[in-house]
Amino acid sequence: MTRTTQAKVDVRRADSRAATRIGWLDSHHSFSFGRHYDPANTHHGLLLVSNDDTVAPGTGFETHPHRDMEIVTWVLGGSLVHQDSVGNAGVLYPGLAQRMSAGRGILHSEKNDSWRLGGEPHDEPVHFVQMWVAPDTEGIDPGYEQLEITDELLRGGLVPVASGMARHDGQSAIRIRNRHAALHAARLTPGSAVDLPEAPYLHLFVAQGEVTLEGSGPLQTGDAVRFTATGGQRLTASAAGPAEILVWEMHTDLAGLAR
């Protein structure tokens, strides 16, 4: 475990993110991504990418490669079609967690064209958050997993979505190849609250709605918070409406992983 010495809560507002806007894509990047490079903003803990993407119907990311990365996709609205070079295919929708382990190399595409698999064409964009964390073992076989967890989310509280941590063995979380990291999600009803985990590194993303973070105040859709050497704060949804949050719990950083 990497020991950090100074507690820090770093609030990043939605409008501070770099953005990629082209005809079919509206993407907002929490960290350096593509042509948006900032040497002071490359990762937090083990999280290297957190992209907030909206893709127009009939379009999407054409086949492209990845290597040695754990990629978790969480859909907020609409549907996203995944296909890859090792034969996996699936339609992702809200409440369905997905993980792709790139391992020694994989090709995949992600498109908003589910009607190709049956059904009527639609004009709804797909809105999703895609997150990349470094694996703790390189060169593994590529892999894929998806799991419906809507029932767990409806019970309230933080739900493990994707985890490599031993304490989540046997729970509903899909498995990632990093024993130091876990992604949690919560759908909060108006006025309800959750307590954040405690870990050397946390990353909170407000996917939808408005919440109040103990000690930091209100957070809106698209806001994020990077916690270092702290945690346990209470997060409360606004009384005005529901909210959805994503929380990465990480017990080392890239430097600690390399040792």
Rank of each mutant, 00 (worst) to 15 (best):
A186R: 00
A193R: 15
P197L: 00
T189I: 10
L188P: 05
F227M: 13
A185I: 00
L196Y: 01
H203G: 14
D195V: 02
V206G: 03
E210R: 15
V211W: 10
G191K: 11
Y201V: 02
A193E: 15
L188V: 01
G191A: 03
L183Y: 03
P218G: 06
A193Y: 13
Q208C: 05
L196N: 03
S192A: 05
S216A: 14
A199I: 02
G215V: 04
T228Y: 11
G215N: 10
T212D: 10
T212K: 13
S216W: 09
R226K: 15
Q220E: 15
G217L: 04
A207H: 07
Q208W: 08
L183V: 03
V211D: 06
Q220I: 07
L183G: 00
L196M: 00
L213R: 04
E214V: 00
Y201P: 02
L202R: 09
G191V: 07
G209L: 11
V225Y: 09
A224W: 06
T221P: 03
E198H: 14
P200A: 00
A207F: 10
P190N: 00
P197A: 00
V211R: 07
G222Q: 03
E198T: 07
P190K: 04
P190C: 00
V194P: 01
L188S: 01
T212L: 00
Q208K: 13
A186G: 00
L183A: 02
D195A: 07
G191M: 08
D223L: 07
H184T: 02
P197C: 01
L204A: 01
L219T: 08
E210C: 12
L213D: 05
L219Y: 14
L213V: 01
L219E: 10
G222K: 06
V206R: 04
A224S: 13
R226H: 14
L219F: 13
A224F: 03
L204T: 11
A186Q: 02
L183E: 01
S216I: 07
Q220V: 10
L213Y: 05
V211I: 02
Q220M: 12
L188W: 14
D223T: 10
A193H: 12
T212N: 12
A199E: 13
R226I: 02
G217I: 01
S192E: 12
Y201K: 05
D223G: 09
A193W: 14
V194G: 00
G191R: 09
P218I: 03
T189N: 13
F205T: 05
G209S: 11
V225S: 13
T212S: 12
Q208M: 11
V211H: 14
A224P: 05
D223V: 12
R187G: 06
L219V: 10
F227P: 15
T189F: 14
G191H: 10
R226E: 07
A199W: 08
T189A: 15
E214W: 09
L213I: 02
Q208T: 12
G191N: 08
A224Y: 14
A224L: 04
P190Y: 01
L202C: 14
G217N: 07
A224I: 05
V225R: 10
V194H: 04
D195Y: 05
R226N: 15
